[in-house]
Amino acid sequence: MEQNEIDELLKGIDLNEKPDAKLEPADDENIGWDDVQEELTQYQVKPQKVEVSPANFEEMPATPVFDSQLNLDFILDIPLTLSVELGRCQMLISELLQLGQGSIIELVKLAGEPMDVYVNQRLIARGEVVVVNEKFGIRLTDIVSQAERVKKLK
């Protein structure tokens, strides 16, 4: 801001005008607790009366009514990750760093043993490897029971 802009703003202000008495500092030594309470009562807002009525809720049926087709349609488009585990092993970082092209990793599972099928990292079935149109596939041989799946969640 330039000086001429500041001068223009100050033309409308009378610097000799005395401020309101309310703005002058009060004598703190003469203020008592009664004065404070009196000042507070002046600014208190009176509570307004509000009408309150009870809420009306509809009675819920004892047994929930479900449309099974509607519920099934709701979840059909949820994406899941299905994976088949050939086997596992544990190794040290030093062993991992020594791996190269042609290295062989020995897995814990035996040849011909069923493979584990996971959905979102949860075991749901076991099966055997098959070849379909020159691609690997899996034929499910055993589905994990619901009781087993719930037990593993705990």
Rank of each mutant, 00 (worst) to 15 (best):
L153W: 01
D34Y: 05
G112V: 01
V36D: 10
D67Y: 06
A147W: 05
D77H: 05
L23D: 12
G137E: 03
V119Y: 13
E38R: 06
V65W: 13
D35Q: 13
A26F: 14
D73F: 05
I6C: 09
G137S: 00
E5T: 09
L15W: 08
E59C: 02
L92I: 01
I6A: 12
L140V: 15
K151L: 08
V50F: 00
L86K: 07
S83F: 02
E58Q: 01
P25Y: 07
L15K: 11
Q42H: 13
Q3V: 11
V132W: 07
I93A: 08
I105N: 01
L140R: 04
P61L: 14
L76S: 11
I124W: 03
G32P: 05
Y118I: 11
Y118Q: 14
V129H: 01
I138H: 04
V144T: 12
I138Y: 01
Q146N: 07
A55E: 00
K22V: 07
Q121Y: 14
R88Q: 11
F74S: 11
L70P: 03
E17W: 06
D116S: 14
A111T: 12
Q69G: 07
I75H: 05
L10C: 06
E58A: 10
P64V: 06
A147G: 04
C89H: 02
D7M: 14
Q3I: 14
S68Y: 12
V129F: 08
Q37I: 15
W33Q: 13
D7R: 10
M91G: 03
Q44A: 09
S68G: 09
E39H: 14
D73T: 02
G137A: 02
V45E: 08
Q121P: 00
P54G: 07
L9G: 05
D142S: 11
E128A: 04
V108N: 08
A55Q: 15
V52G: 12
R88K: 15
A21K: 15
D77K: 07
P47A: 03
L153C: 07
P54D: 12
V129P: 04
F66G: 02
Q37V: 07
E128Q: 14
I105T: 00
L99W: 02
A26S: 06
L153Y: 04
S68Q: 09
R88C: 04
E59H: 05
L40Q: 09
V36M: 10
N120A: 13
D28M: 11
P79H: 13
I143M: 15
N120G: 08
P47H: 14
L76A: 12
L76Q: 15
V129S: 07
Q42I: 05
L76Y: 01
G87Y: 00
A62I: 13
I143R: 11
E128G: 02
